[in-house]
Design a protein around this nucleic acid. Structure first.
Lengths: 257, 257
DNA sequence: TTTTAGATATCGCGA
DNA sequence: TCGCGATGTCTAAAA
């Protein structure tokens, strides 16, 4: 195998003709490189649904692991994509460069037909750094598992992330009176869906353990319809703020100084 | 005649020094251009949550509308992002190029510190094409609204996308016996959440209209726990396939020939 | 593989 | 603006 192209210096083509672009892509796709193509193209997708966009200028990203993204000029989401691909094919059909990214499970295909390539690049992309995130629900769960009394005085932890056949219970506790309490956590405003999720767990625990089982929904906020539903089911809402709770616990340094 | 915006030649910097990169970005960010930077950088985010990644090679995308994406070598998702930003600032701190993208509502900030820029590009990106998707839930809904008898013989449509205070009812029908039927559609395998969603609607309609109200969950598949829950609530599952149903209706040409 | 639930989800619609 | 639900959601985790 020839030496990996683009291992040190990025390679760039500006306004290439279709033959040059085809060769460039053929030699660099599937080599562990990040390949980008900016140009005028059409995009078609067929799989779980089907979509089509006519000619326009887009940026195509081909990642080393096979991820395939077609970005337009606006927004967070790509207009078409493939989270991971099994094969990416490059061909030239009468001056049109065709990129076809396919995967199985689900069986899907994205086809980009590039009528005019304006810019193509290829470069190695090394990133072994670990991604650290704080403020997720699991952080909130850990903090409250340590100090369940913050949810309600006298509350004691029985179990955490308890898997059941209807889903995982965030926190299973016992209150001051010895009753079982199912606690469902949300890091965002809680909706009706959160309430029905809690209901499923309470029903299950009640069925398994017998006796009265309480339900508590802990979140920074709750929607009005969710509060109504919650009260009708006899459950309780407790306000908790993830960002308030965590710095006191984690004592991590400020990200921006 | 001045060249059209998108006809301009893309601009490219390879292995620029930090001053050159800083100037390049300062002059091109906020000009309606798509700007990309590939290089070694750290990324920090603070907002609804907080995250940090140490040095690694990433690709930064700055879209004309302010969307901001930092992509690593793997996967569909960016490692950091901002769906739309109010301001993007460029500065140079002792040889490190710093990009700071902020937005309000929610108040958030992403900061990229580029220690070594390897490739930077800027180009106009024109795309006025309309995106056409078939096979979404709303397509399925339209098809079944036309022919409710495909869900159950004798079923007649009363209303569609009916907004209520607990959410929108996909299809409200009357069966052969004149009873009200709430139909909830899913284009994917239906889960317990879909069942509780249906339950909310049935409860509401029953409360408002009085009398017995039936519930039907129409989807291509249903999970086993969802089926159990559905049956316990006295509802019915009907199998419908979006991709089967739509081609007969739409008669669109094959995307790939 | 199936199922569930989280996500800095994002996005769009309706009240 | 809030609330709700779809998304070609994607992704990780657990059974």
């Amino acid at each position: 195998m020839p030496p990996a192209a683009g291992a040190d210096r990025p390679e760039v083509l500006i306004d290439p003709d279709s033959e040059t672009l085809t060769e460039f892509l053929r030699d660099r796709v599937h080599r562990g490189l990040l390949v980008t193509v900016l140009g005028e193209c059409t995009v078609a997708y067929e799989g779980r649904a089907a979509s089509q966009v006519q000619h326009g200028e887009r940026l195509v990203l081909l990642k080393p692991d096979g991820a395939f993204l077609v970005h337009g000029p606006r927004g967070y989401r790509p207009i078409n994509w493939q989270p991971s691909t099994d094969t990416v094919m490059v061909s030239n059909e009468g001056g049109v460069v065709v990129l076809t990214a396919t995967r199985r499970n689900p069986d899907e295909r994205v086809e980009v037909r590039i009528r005019r390539g304006r810019l193509a690049t290829a470069a190695a992309l090394e990133d072994s750094s670990q991604f650290l995130l704080t403020g997720s629900e699991s952080d909130l769960q850990a903090a409250l598992a340590e100090r369940p009394e913050l949810i309600e005085p006298g509350l004691r932890l029985e179990d955490r992330e308890l898997p059941t056949r209807v889903g995982g219970i965030d926190l299973l506790c016992r209150d001051a009176g010895g009753r079982l309490v199912v606690v469902e956590l949300k890091r965002n405003r809680a909706s009706q869906a959160a309430v029905t999720q809690l209901k499923r767990y309470v029903d299950l625990v009640s069925e398994q353990a017998g006796g009265e089982v309480r339900g508590i929904l802990a979140a920074p906020e709750i929607t009005e319809p969710a509060r109504t539903l919650l009260e009708r089911m006899g459950f309780k809402y407790v306000e908790v703020d993830p960002m308030d709770l965590l710095p006191a616990e984690g004592e991590q340094p400020a990200l921006f100084s």
